[in-house]
Design a binder for these strands. Structure first.
Lengths: 181, 181
DNA sequence: GTCGTTACTGTACGGACGTACAGGACGGTG
DNA sequence: CACCGTCCTGTACGTCCGTACAGTAACGAC
């Protein structure tokens, strides 16, 4: 965009439209044509800027990825503070949480280095941290319950202010994980 | 099957394969060809028995539907017993819970009387019962947190015995909903 | 034996998807 | 001016999906 664009930041508008549509319907259920018509350009224009489609997801996910690394590296002592960090992360990046939970890459095939594979590994890492090493059945159930509550609560209340969601959700997640406050 | 079938219950095997695949990958991500190859017949055979595709989902969902009606009509006094009933229902029908949460019908279009529309209405009804009338932000967050924890915990632990999941999940859901046991 | 029903198979169609590619409009640079 | 890179359109291709339809083999009924 060095030319006729004062205000017509097509690339950025595509990114924002994709963020919203992905959050509403999910990655697989959102086509390039959907995004294109939301922005007011052609499908080919979207493909021009983001090629292939999963680059859209990758670019949307990038801030969240760097953020979670910072958060994790900052360190936390116990399980409780880990959950706090996790809830904060989920709420802050709620517009892309659905991309993390959804399996972006197909079911089985895993082209090494693809964004889908990295996502799956990341989510499994979070789960492992929640469930602990060699988890018993109850631990598995609790870990998935926490993950599920995070995803749904965060995605379905995008219209609410961040801090409100964060406070309530933190209490709910802590309780579900078995912490008695 | 009045003919060459002692043991070759194709229709039933299609149903079971579909149940498993839908639970693993979801409805939209499972094609008729996937189901067909899992059973060992052609795609057309699946279409012959279940036409159109959503009849597969409808038939899988039928027992859950009649069960939830029975459960709801049996009545319960407070919110706590409602949650108990809901958890029991979710665990018992965990192989099809994903079909309930997933939006089977497309995003916007709603052919009246379609199974997708009924599902959405059903799920909204459950949510409304959880969140209460005119819910405040915190109530919305909690309701979705409970719903999300139910779905994920139930779907990701299909290999565990029903009663184990039910007990742990009930405790987690009650806690997430704000009940102090 | 003929007929009709049931349970499929093989083939093909129409639509939606992501993608590839050629071309055109525009502004910056030489 | 010519030249080039950027941004975007129009068109088209290959693939996969659900679906439609004609044909076929096996059985029971008469």
């Amino acid at each position: 965009m060095t030319t006729l664009d004062p205000g017509y930041d097509t690339r950025g508008r595509i990114l924002e439209a994709a963020r919203q549509l992905f959050a509403e319907r999910g990655y697989a259920a959102t086509s390039l044509a959907d995004i294109a018509s939301a922005v007011g350009v052609t499908k080919t224009a979207v493909a021009y800027h983001f090629h292939p489609k999963d680059r859209l997801a990758a670019e949307l996910l990038a801030p969240a990825a760097s953020d979670i690394v910072t958060l994790i590296e900052s360190g936390f002592d116990d399980e409780r503070s880990f959950l706090e960090v996790l809830v904060t992360f989920a709420v802050r990046h709620r517009t892309v949480i659905r991309l993390i939970m959804e399996d972006i890459g197909g079911a089985d095939d895993a082209p090494p280095g693809s964004p889908g594979e990295a996502l799956r590994a990341f989510r499994d890492c979070i789960y492992a941290r929640l469930a602990g090493p060699d988890p018993d059945p109850a631990g598995r159930v609790r870990a998935w319950a926490v993950l599920g509550s995070l995803q749904y609560a965060v995605v379905k209340t995008i219209d609410l202010p961040e801090e409100t969601v964060r406070e309530t959700l933190l209490a709910a997640a802590l309780a579900a994980a078995g912490f008695t406050s």
